[in-house]
């Protein structure tokens, strides 16, 4: 399967099933487009008809030879050898290796788009996770992780720093169990920044592998959607704290992460604003919200958003040229390594190797399902009760999803979120707008690779 497209002056050809990526001239681009369906004579005639005398017959035949050579080498028109190998997902034994720990179902902001319903998660009451529940959750993770060594715990909410003492004690507890259990804990934390102080910063720089700092971009954009409980914006409080935190972070990972909505479809300006503030690791994602909300992304917005992704890609290349590179999370694509095929095809792991734990110890497939009783899988005291539901999540792989199995992005996207349920009432469907945007981001990410490769050649 071939996916080819033009972007920012580059003709890009992706050989989907081998992962090969080629940048080609106009002649090869057109020949590849018709290569499988036409004879060589027909190709020559079609090219001559389109370009007149621009290319000689010798040029065209040589290009055909180059293409045939790549095909023989398994770098073009490669067959899909994976769909039959991966088919038996349901029988695979899965272990838990990551928990999203809802350390606080409470929040000091009142963000309008919050899928956690300001920390209350749709009817769950405001509460903080106790140390006892947290310890039991870590025990559950260790006991259910089989022979996995690397375990991950994300402190999430609500606002995790509203329960900072328990966060600290749980990290200490996890570290105390690492050696005897033969495990390595990787702790991560997401925060809105309101409670960031020197003690929190020191702790995070010692113990937290990746910190996600929530900021939507420009002051007016951020404050419209992320007010505090008294209605005032959060920008002026959090930006100085984030800057201080990032300056102290050294080489440890962080992301300043924003959400864009229908109110700021020009989100490249927010990216630029955050980059100009000195943040070098940035993520901006489209809002996930019910269709009827006034800020929800609509189908009619897709074209504008795709143009915006193009602008963002060009800005990233420019910053690279100026020697001040900034990372945009969804444009990170490891073309030379990346995860193995098994990982690429088996999806995000929600409901199987990744579970969310509520403050009372209930288990859900991931943070986006918390509060939806239908998806409560069990609890940390009695383990998984709904194994049939876990089996359904095991099947969340790209070849089980009709919309994904022939999609050119399937080896980079892995089927997206199981939470397409919110839009299609099936975890085996795909969220259409999300898919469109994901495909566009992958196209831009590959184009950036082409541009940076050209830059390196020129140096």
């Amino acid at each position: 399967m071939i996916h080819q497209y033009k972007n920012n002056g580059y003709n890009i050809v992706l050989d989907v099933c081998s992962g090969s990526v080629h940048v080609v001239d106009d002649l090869c681009y057109d020949i590849i487009e018709m290569y499988e369906g036409k004879s060589q004579d027909e190709i020559v005639a079609a090219i001559r008809s389109k370009y007149g005398e621009l290319y000689t017959e010798k040029d065209i035949l040589e290009a055909c030879e180059d293409i045939e050579e790549l095909k023989k080498e398994g770098q073009l028109f490669t067959e899909d050898v994976y769909k039959d190998i991966i088919i038996d997902h349901k029988k695979r034994k899965t272990v838990v290796k990551a928990l999203c720990l809802h350390i606080a179902h409470d929040c000091n902001l009142a963000c309008k788009y919050c899928f956690a319903d300001e920390g209350e998660y749709h009817g769950q009451k405001r509460e903080l996770m106790s140390l006892e529940v947290g310890k039991k959750a870590l025990d559950f993770l260790i006991e259910n992780s089989g022979n996995r060594v690397n375990l991950e715990v994300d402190f999430f909410g609500g606002e995790p720093l509203m329960n900072f003492d328990v966060v600290k004690e749980l990290v200490a507890y996890g570290r105390s169990r690492e050696k005897e259990a033969g495990k390595n804990f990787r702790f991560t934390l997401t925060t809105n920044g309101m409670l960031l102080n020197d003690e929190v910063i020191d702790f995070c720089n010692r113990e937290i592998s990746n910190v996600v700092l929530s900021l939507d971009g420009r002051k007016e954009v951020n404050d419209l959607m992320r007010p505090s409980r008294n209605g005032k914006g959060s920008y002026d409080i959090i930006v100085p704290k984030f800057k201080k935190f990032v300056e102290s972070r050294g080489d440890k990972s962080y992301y300043v992460r924003g959400t864009f909505t229908r109110n700021n479809l020009d989100f490249t300006e927010d990216f630029k604003h955050m980059a100009d503030l000195g943040f070098k690791e940035i993520s901006i994602e489209p809002v996930v919200s019910p269709d009827e909300s006034e800020y929800a992304i609509r189908e009619e917005d897709i074209e504008k958003i795709c143009q915006e992704y193009d602008k963002l890609a060009v800005d990233i290349i420019d910053r690279h040229k100026k020697g001040k590179p900034v990372t945009f999370f969804h444009y990170m694509l490891d073309l030379t390594g990346g995860p193995c095929v098994y990982k690429r095809l088996s999806g995000c792991g929600s409901g199987t190797e990744y579970l969310a734990v509520t403050p009372t110890g209930e288990l859900y497939p991931c943070h986006q399902f918390v509060g939806n009783e239908e998806f409560k899988l069990g609890d940390i005291y009695n383990g998984i009760q709904k194994n049939d539901l876990v089996d359904e999540f095991k099947m969340c792989n790209v070849y089980a999803k009709e919309k994904c199995k022939d999609c050119y992005a399937r080896f980079y996207c892995s089927g997206g979120a199981a939470n397409s349920y919110q839009f299609h009432n099936s975890i085996l469907d795909a969220y259409d707008i999300g898919c469109e945007l994901q495909r566009k981001r992958i196209e831009c990410a590959i184009m950036i690779k082409a541009a940076l490769a050209e830059l390196e050649e020129g140096e």
């Binding site: 992962g19 940048v23 290796k97 060594v149 193995c340 990982k343 690429r344 190797e353 690779k449 490769a453």
Partner: peptide
């Protein structure tokens, strides 16, 4: 220019890699 520049060729589980897209994750 050369007609075809190959950026990468044929790039395509121990379960130890990081979990929460996967295309931008790294591998063992």
């Amino acid at each position: 220019m050369k007609r075809i520049k190959t950026l990468t060729n044929k790039t395509l589980g121990c379960g130890e890699c990081q979990t929460c897209t996967v295309g931008n994750q790294s591998c063992n």
